[in-house]
Design a protein around this nucleic acid. Structure first.
Lengths: 119, 119
DNA sequence: TCGATGTGCAACTATGAAGTTGCAACCAAG
DNA sequence: CTTGGTTGCAACTTCATAGTTGCACATCGA
């Protein structure tokens, strides 16, 4: 109803991307440095450069980072748009749950009976 | 840093839990029905009851659902608190990225050095 | 041109998670 | 007590993904 369904794919990708601690760390490093290459990031994370690259591909597919080729190196930057969309989605979802729970609670108090549906 | 670090474990659990589409579907069903058992949920989802139970355990560990034993059945309910906390965390993170990007952009414009696109 | 540094691609391993099946235990109603 | 429905536990399979290594390709500087 009031939940935005248009960016379901975006939300899906962002949630999957944020589920990994290493990727969250990379995003943290990126937001702190403004720009960084995969090689530079690999120095601040206990995995290899190729592992970092794979993570950056996932983050790029989720729209969370942007790759810019500068000479022979690839600079990565954080992109807040899809994160912001997912944050809004989650906030709306939490509000929706609260609404439903409030309604159910009110209904339960009024009708005194607890059997909601399944007999 | 304005980012709340106290609920890092909560955020971690919620993100991991929400990463799975089946778990999101279960949460959707639960928020719609108010209450449901694992057997009931399994009828609305293309997986077995035991798979649903495992998902519910994950959701319970993440603080997203609550289990209540009623007679011989276990009723599950949605719990918005940790979802709300995660939503706030994500909103703060998006705002933080925006802040940093704005600062970097302002700095780049002021110092005139970085040829962003036109060489 | 030559070397050094950085990136891209491919093959491979392995650990964890999602899902299944089977069976035991439990509880309510006949 | 027995029977039907419900949950709980355990072993097992399967598959995605995080990680590795090795090498080829590009690019900058001397």
């Amino acid at each position: 109803m009031s939940l935005p369904e248009a960016d379901a794919a975006v939300v899906d990708g962002v949630l999957a991307a944020l589920a990994d601690p290493t990727r969250r760390r990379l995003l943290d490093l990126l937001s702190g440095h403004g720009q960084a290459t995969a090689s530079t990031l690999a120095q601040h994370v206990p995995v290899s450069r190729q592992a970092v690259v794979k993570h950056l591909v996932v983050l790029d597919d989720a729209g969370l980072v942007e790759a810019t080729k500068v000479g022979r190196e690839v600079r990565y930057t954080v992109r807040p748009d899809s994160l912001d969309a997912t944050a809004r989605w989650m906030t709306a979802l939490a509000a929706d749950w609260d609404r439903r729970l409030a309604r159910i609670r009110r209904f339960a108090e009024a009708s005194e009976i607890s059997g909601t549906d399944t007999p």
